[in-house]
Design a binder for these strands. Sequence first.
RNA 1: GGGCGGGUAGCUCAGUUGGGAGAGCGCAGCCCUUACAAGGCUGAUGUCACAGGUUCGAGUCCUGUUCCGCCUACCA
Length: 951
Amino acid sequence: MSNRQIELTKSYNPQEVEDKWYHFWESSGYFKPDPDATKRPFCIVIPPPNITGSLHMGHAMNVAIQDIFVRWKRMSGHRVLWLPGTDHAGIATQNVVEKELSKEGVDRHKLGRDAFIERIWEWKAEHGGKIIHQIKRLGASCDWSRERFTLDEGLSKAVREVFVTLYEEGLIYRDDRLINWCPRCHTALSDLEVEYDEIDGKLYYIKYPLTDGKGYISVATTRPETMLGDTAVAVHPEDERYGHFIGKTINLPLVGREIPIISESSVDPSFATGAVKVTPAHDFSDEAIGRQHNLPSISVITEDGRMGIAAGERYSGLDRYRCRKKVLEDLIELGLLEGEKRHNFAVGHCYRCKTTIEPLLTIQWYVAIESLASEAIKVVRNRKVRLIPESWENNYFAWMRDIKDWCISRQIWWGHQIPVWYCAGCKRDDKTPQGEIIEHIFFGTVNLPDGTALAGGKYSELRKSGMSHTEIIKNSKITRIPRDIKSICRRDDPKECPECRSRDIIRDPDVLDTWFSSALWPFSTLGWPEDTEDLRTFYPTNLLVTGFDILFFWVARMIMMGMKFMGDPPFRDVYIHALVRDLKGQKMSKSKGNIIDPLLLIDKYGADAFRFSLAALAARGRDIKFSEERIEGYRHFINKLWNATKFIINNEQLWTEQPLHDYDKDLDLPSRWIISRLASTASAIDKHLRAYRFSEAANGIYQFVWHEFCDWYIELTKPVLLHGSDKEKVIIVNCLFFVLEQVLQLLHPFMPFVTEEIWHKISRQKGSIIRSPYPLRLPTYQNAVEEMGHVINAVTGIRSIRGELNIAPSIEIEADIKVYSEEAGEIIKNNLAAIKKLTRCKEIGVAPEVECIKGSAVAVKEEMEIYVPIGGLLDIGAEVNRLQKEMKKIDESLNFLNKKLLNADFLSSAPKSVLQKDKARFDDLLSRKDKIEETLKLFDAVKRETTAGPK
RNA sequence: GGGCGGGUAGCUCAGUUGGGAGAGCGCAGCCCUUACAAGGCUGAUGUCACAGGUUCGAGUCCUGUUCCGCCUACCA
């Protein structure tokens, strides 16, 4: 037996222990996969957070769920790897550092590409670890020795390999198309990176005069400035108002261009004027019309969101919004603005900086997505990849069906630069070198030794004027490389053109979409393209935990790339958790100011309470409205556990540390009961976790610990500890410790810190709870639950009487229990001490025949009637009231059951088990009804006596 | 316009194959019973959105209606 002195503080103090245990775990290597190769591997890769980010509720939810799962799997005997890392987040990171630079009055172009990238690495070293540190505070048991970053050497190699392979197979190509352009970030964006927000705008009606002078046609537009690039007006072929105009031409106001009126069935005649101006270079639907009708595309807006030369001298150089104003003014002056109307419509915004997107005609790199997508659809369809909850499958399929080629080039510097070179020396078909059509636009101007200032020009000319190759590259803000220039794509950086040996090769300045590297995450982090031990062991990974907001951005693309390059999907299960919203159900966002900072919650309540709340709230497929009150409740739960531990440890000197098995035949009913209940709780939790039902798992253990272990079992041990024999005490203390240990283990995945802290307070345990075996296959004792039910009924019966009749706890009462069976009587008698203690009774009589004494309160339970004689103290009216209320309930149930049992159809078609259950219940209710009726009669007699008065 | 999810106690939400409606918080009453007042005991509260249907039996399955979210779409 132990003679250690263990002291527990009055309440649990998370701040004091969390850091300590985290360091202990990490430094002891517990987060690394178990070296035992016979264990089944289990692997999760973390959704890499953005290095510029800081932890928000979404991350917290995501990380908490993964850690619960990982810790559970680790304890269940798996060789677990949870692989962490971060994402370089091209645009976001570049924006952050650019902002920092602008405070110093520096522009990235002044700094130059290499120096700027160097600067970002410095920033990353200083601030990039912030979110990792925050994830650790949640208790995340990631293997940090394997932490990866999307711009790591290894991951970059993977990106290069994938790009070159897809390029060689023709699945990566370059094309001129209309794309979503952010004029502020100065880059192309993929369709997914555009957010559409409804805005209060205006619809302007503009008169377009016919060239033949016979009237005009009115068009409606939300963007008048784009009219400068109009190349047609479209009307519906069957529109009676306009049919006769088709084939005629318009004299485009302000520009003077003659443009045709074309017939286009996609035009809705009922909307606005029914005539649409067509600007193929600045509107996606117009681009489609333009292609169909072979219309020219005239770009009138530049990459800066200003009007270009093609917009005409009057407007060139103006910002797009200033130009809109000016166009409108000019139209008014000409009397061509017919009117304007309020109009709400959706406008695309950059998801990073919220600037209004400008559709621009540019040349970009694309991934041909169709063949990749069809494989990715297949594996979800045949459930090689399971989406959980399944309802996301529909969304997934819908998106994959309509998927468009993926624009992967970004006009920024931070990221994986595209491994493509263009040779200035190679000759084109007309024998002129390619360098003559490669155009450079400089940042500012470059002064040549002869004094001329250059703002850019064709590569060949710049070379002729004396600039070196590197000078040209360094000063280029924009490099325009037309599509017909041959590209050189290599696994190694070429030093010269493989065809003409020219050293004037220009690398494509663009970098890849960050999601391109994220798409490779599940295998690039494990070492691919090298054939590593980790890759062989852990790929395909078992589970991906993510929010639905990146289902398409990331999950779908990982599946595509996994299938393409590994021939196997990157994970088996995808658990898609809900979004965390505020109490009103609104998305948390900085602009709404409704953000709850998870770190503040951890400071205030501890990581365990916070994690437990997240788990308890994580019902499948539903958004979570988060409230602080809820955490408070779970902090109380931790405190409850802490105090139960205190009680148990107070009796530590009686703990023999022998396996409970040794006491098996001497266990009393409450002990057999609590162990049986523990066993079913453990298996229920296991079942729930397997099915990703985190809330049920959390609530199950909560219910057990608080309302069975603490409310009943610990209370029931008290009389034994006070009055029992030494042997009884030893047994019950061993049982207390046994249950506590199992409870800690069951709870550990949910609340790692407090369970580890308590685990170490218990002397028997060596090492960390983190690698202790998760409780499964615990013993259960036959009939223990049913038998304990009698004890509980007796106690609650007496307590109800006390409570409802307001008998002060200080008053000790007597009670009589009339039992219906010998077995029930035995059980009650065997546990009488406990029942007395829990009901504050000084005496309880138990017999099959007990008669109701006058002035007794009555409770009728299954298998027993309880009488509490309180003589003159009894308020007969109140007691009659109470019984009548109970009668009413019983009658209602009886009616319901009676109807059912009289129904011939029910009797013939319901399963036997249901029938039997209902019959038994009916009989029980009926006998209870009889008892209560009897009692009521008795009271009636007493009442009459009292009213009649003594003679 | 299309798709998805949801309407269950005062609030926030559970409710896995159809078989007597649950939890937490809040509320009311009584209690500092030597682990815990961040606690204990007792109690009250529901036309499971509405209307039909299938079934012996529906919160649960089907159809329609309605309200609320989210995603998606080229009404300029």
